[in-house]
Write a protein that binds this DNA or RNA. Structure first.
Length: 268
RNA sequence: AUGUAAAGGGGCU
């Protein structure tokens, strides 16, 4: 099981689906009975390939054979249908999971909330958020960030910030990370609230979170598009490097220097 | 304590 699941998953991720299917057939010929993990790897692979309907058939097959789908299986399938633009079927999978005895976790909720937000169903996403809380499932950083992203895209930055402040007080697995911050930077910059974005950047540095290449791109873009006269961002990044260095954040500073070199913005 | 076969979030394109 361990080898087959790892191979199938890896082959699909490298876009070698023919090889994955060959392996699956070979496994079958050998009379090997795949378990939940192996089925889940195949279902996830089919979804990545854009074939969620085939993946759904495999779900039915595994159930017929007495194999019990779990949160991995259902979350992959939901994501697959969302990715294919068939959110109705994704929701059907969600409902099927609810009817099963499967323990729903924060990953399932993240996939659902992300998918709903992506098709503009913010209300439904918020209902899923409440559902998660009322069922005793604690949102982790990804779940929070998915909901925050949904609020930002709907223009509800204040709602997004309310969740963000909630995250700050949580335990480690629910603390905001660089992805959370980048989503907020992007939303604030796009609403011409650059100074609030810079304030948030400062508090991020205080929290011990290092900026990355996406952070740089977000700020460089606003500096060149929203500023009169436009800036190339070199000074901004130079200052960032210095501030990281002063805080002994050597690897964080190096990351920014690498970004600068990659953009032909020579650091001072 | 953490990690140890399969699933989830960010900018530009």
């Amino acid at each position: 099981e361990y080898v087959y699941s790892a191979l199938i998953s890896g082959l699909y991720k490298e876009a070698k689906s023919e090889d994955a299917v060959k392996l699956w057939k070979k496994m079958d010929e050998k009379g090997f009975r795949p378990n939940t993990v192996v089925y889940s790897a195949l279902i996830d692979g089919l979804c990545r390939e854009g074939k969620p309907d085939e993946a759904k058939e495999m779900l039915n097959e595994m159930i017929d054979k007495g194999c019990v789908p779990n949160a991995y299986t259902y979350s992959s399938l939901m994501k697959g249908f969302f990715k294919a633009g068939v959110s109705d079927k994704a929701i059907q999978v969600w409902e099927e999971m609810q009817k099963s005895n499967c323990a729903v976790n924060e990953v399932c909720y993240s996939v659902l909330i992300h998918g709903l937000c992506e098709v503009g169903k913010l209300k439904e996403a918020m209902m899923s958020w409440s559902h998660m809380l009322s069922h005793g499932c604690k949102p982790d950083a990804v779940a929070y960030t998915s909901m925050i992203h949904g609020f930002c895209n709907a223009g509800s930055i204040n709602e997004a910030l309310r969740l963000f402040h909630e995250m700050i007080c949580q335990e480690r697995k629910s603390k905001p990370d660089i992805v959370t911050y980048n989503i907020l930077f992007n939303a604030l910059c796009k609403q011409n609230e650059t100074s609030r974005a810079v304030d948030l950047l400062n508090s991020m540095l205080d929290q011990g979170c290092d900026p990355d290449v996406v952070t740089c791109n977000i700020f460089l873009r606003t500096l060149s598009e929203r500023l009169d006269p436009p800036q190339d961002g070199r000074e901004f990044l130079d200052e960032l490097v210095i501030r990281l260095f002063k805080r002994q954040r050597i690897s964080g500073a190096c990351k920014i220097v690498e970004v600068m070199l990659g953009k032909f913005l020579p650091p001072k």
